[in-house]
Amino acid sequence: MASAPFPTEESVPPPAIAVERLGCRLGGRMVLSDIGFSVPGGEILGILGPNGSGKTTLLRCVAGLQTPSAGRVLIDGDDPRALRPVELARRLALQAQDSTAALGFTVRDVVGMGRLVHRRSPFAGAGAEDRAIVEDALDRLELSGLAGRAVEQLSGGERQRVMIARALAQRPRILLLDEPTNHLDIHHRFAVLDLVRSLGITVVATLHDIELAARWCDRILLLADGRLQADAAPEDALTPDRLTAVYRVAAAVDRRPEDGLLRIDLSPLMSPRTEPSR
């Protein structure tokens, strides 16, 4: 049986995501301050910044898992916290970094959990369409050969692909990815991001690999100390001066002559003590 297609953006009025003057305080510290942006349907948005800049907290606010201290998030014009969990899960899927909740299950079981929100009843078994969608997700993430294996027997990269496959099995209109390339080898980094881009749905992803983000994303949000430093196309957001200010490294940015893709070279800042003598 052919698997059901991913929803298109034709019926979703833009913006798919709107974030308005968002602030978030955790443990007495302002983690995010005055963040605002919108994401039109079908766009691939990358969130970049050093550790502690607020990337994951921002993603959790968008997903409705973290309550903002100020401002608001709208998903298709609705507050995600006001939606029934099943309704939100049919619109939006989150791949989080923590895969411990999947322990004790097989790969196929975990990917199948993505279909629970589409069941008429929590007690209903998987139908033919559910099974076809699960097998499709396993195949897309190159997991079919591991489908019967327990998740705890997998490598970190394999677990990461399982969690992405579970999110894809939800068939969401909006996909939130928290460090999707974490633990992945080079082949699977490109394969996973190319797959996600091919779906034609709205994607927001936190990323550490700056050059990969420049290659894959339509737009970049650059965060530092919980504040928005840039919101622009990769070539406009990832300038040498901005990368130096945000990451405290020396940066050179140009384009590869063979295909025009951005090439970003980062190196430690030279201090007076380490600067070579002339």
Score class of each variant (00 low, 15 high):
residue 260 G to S: 08
residue 181 T to K: 03
residue 57 T to L: 09
residue 11 S to A: 15
residue 37 F to S: 02
residue 164 I to D: 09
residue 126 A to K: 00
residue 34 D to Q: 04
residue 66 Q to H: 04
residue 133 I to G: 03
residue 67 T to F: 02
residue 12 V to A: 13
residue 190 F to R: 07
residue 254 D to N: 09
residue 158 E to N: 07
residue 157 G to R: 07
residue 136 D to P: 00
residue 175 L to V: 07
residue 33 S to W: 03
residue 217 C to T: 14
residue 152 E to C: 01
residue 255 R to S: 12
residue 249 V to D: 08
residue 202 T to K: 02
residue 243 L to W: 01
residue 39 V to M: 02
residue 232 A to R: 04
residue 30 M to Q: 12
residue 223 L to G: 05
residue 88 L to Q: 05
residue 106 T to E: 10
residue 231 D to V: 01
residue 55 K to G: 02
residue 47 I to A: 04
residue 59 L to E: 05
residue 11 S to P: 00
residue 20 E to N: 12
residue 145 G to H: 13
residue 179 E to M: 01
residue 183 H to W: 04
residue 177 L to P: 08
residue 246 V to S: 04
residue 100 T to E: 15
residue 89 A to C: 12
residue 249 V to G: 06
residue 97 Q to E: 15
residue 144 S to V: 13
residue 19 V to S: 08
residue 74 L to Q: 13
residue 234 P to L: 09
residue 128 A to W: 00
residue 130 D to W: 10
residue 9 E to K: 07
residue 96 A to E: 14
residue 178 D to P: 09
residue 82 A to S: 15
residue 146 L to C: 12
residue 117 V to E: 04
residue 147 A to I: 04
residue 199 L to I: 01
residue 50 P to S: 11
residue 93 A to R: 06
residue 30 M to P: 01
residue 202 T to W: 00
residue 51 N to I: 08
residue 29 R to I: 14
residue 36 G to V: 05
residue 69 S to I: 00
residue 237 A to D: 09
residue 78 D to K: 11
residue 239 T to F: 10
residue 146 L to F: 15
residue 21 R to E: 14
residue 63 A to M: 07
